[in-house]
Design a protein around this nucleic acid. Sequence first.
DNA 1: TTATTACTAATTGCATACACTTTGTACGCA
DNA 2: TGCGTACAAAGTGTATGCAATTAGTAATAA
Lengths: 235, 235
Amino acid sequence: MMDRDPTQADTVRFAIESDIFNGQLAPGDALEEGRLAARFGVSRTPVREAITQLAQAGLITKRAHRRAVVAELDPSALLELFEALSELEGAAAFLSTARMSPNEKSKLMNIHEQAATNLRKQGDPNDYADLGFAFHQLIVRGCHNKVLIDTTELLALRVLPYRRFQVVAPGRLQRNQSDHDAIISAIFAGDAAAARDQIQRHTLEQGDALMRFIALNKTSHADFYPASLTKEHSL
Amino acid sequence: MMDRDPTQADTVRFAIESDIFNGQLAPGDALEEGRLAARFGVSRTPVREAITQLAQAGLITKRAHRRAVVAELDPSALLELFEALSELEGAAAFLSTARMSPNEKSKLMNIHEQAATNLRKQGDPNDYADLGFAFHQLIVRGCHNKVLIDTTELLALRVLPYRRFQVVAPGRLQRNQSDHDAIISAIFAGDAAAARDQIQRHTLEQGDALMRFIALNKTSHADFYPASLTKEHSL
DNA sequence: TTATTACTAATTGCATACACTTTGTACGCA
DNA sequence: TGCGTACAAAGTGTATGCAATTAGTAATAA
């Protein structure tokens, strides 16, 4: 949508996105055009435009004459989101199995092994999460279908604000890693159907876990937002 | 996104959408904020907002300092779009097989039979096209997953401007109808996997036909836009 | 004639102003 | 005290104006 020569609306939009993914802005938080305008040193016009775009993308909820808020997903909405995402990722994986270049495949394997190492050496769980994100992203992008990629990543973005809820339950990471094992095996074996089924089940389970965790912890969202979440997620 | 109390931007947005789907606005046509504002009797502000939203939805292409144009899809982009759409519809059909209510199923069958009658009696092809659209829509909505439905319909919208290109090649409608036969049979038989495969192949073939037709007729788009296309497509 | 350049007109991006809607608060009443 | 109402403060939706950029046009050179 935006090209070179980013307009101020693009800049503001990106800044707000970052805030949402960083947790500076939590689901349910209100977005006031005036304050944002002041904060970014622009008028309300480009801020409004940015908000409109984010609303269209589903990251923000906007109703006429009411202030925009960062989209809040109740458990059932989260479930739907993950169900749809799992289908999209499954479709992408199916296509990627045949379409990924050797270079893309080796990148994927590389990420996967880095993750394994991180796990073995009990590295930073945040790093592990980032590697997992990259893993999924590489598979999705491997399908070489821009529409499918954009659509999938748009949905993936919508769960990102909830990522910090990710439970680090005992054995969860190992389970994740062995899931990834199965996925990567299917891809390298050229078994597209298996790749689809594996990643679909995997993503669905991730969603299930997250959903249940949130459902069980209905306390104010703010409690779960640690002040220090510095890592920027590349989009 | 919009609720009751539609704002002027919503009104304008809807009007532009209609123009695009009616063919008043063809792919490649420029959208001037000033003229649109004058035409709708509002200022440029709500027009800009409407355009921003449509751009985000993919119906319009917008670059900084250049005027917005109705999105143009080259054959390869169309192919990608249909590939993604076929996966989405396939996923929806898979879920719908188990989730459609008896009432929804009977509605679907009803539409299908109306289409059969239209075909047998050589009715208006436009009516047949509308029934086909409704057929797909009912299946998609039958999955009861709002995210998946919205995502799928968003992509379906993006091909709508090209719908008038639809070839009425000999036997094409019969083929379409027998495809639908197979799909509906799978759904009523409760065979989710078959429903998925059938609708996926079907949608992919529709896209292929359209794509090839457009590729073979590279003349100015305007040639293919008959003046009389009065039917409004319900969204 | 065709291509290139300079210039003008049209158009976009943004700031500002204002009316209308909503939200927060204090008051009055039960 | 609790609830509803009225008023005040804040915020959103839209109109308008202006500067920066693009698009159209005419003049010039090849």
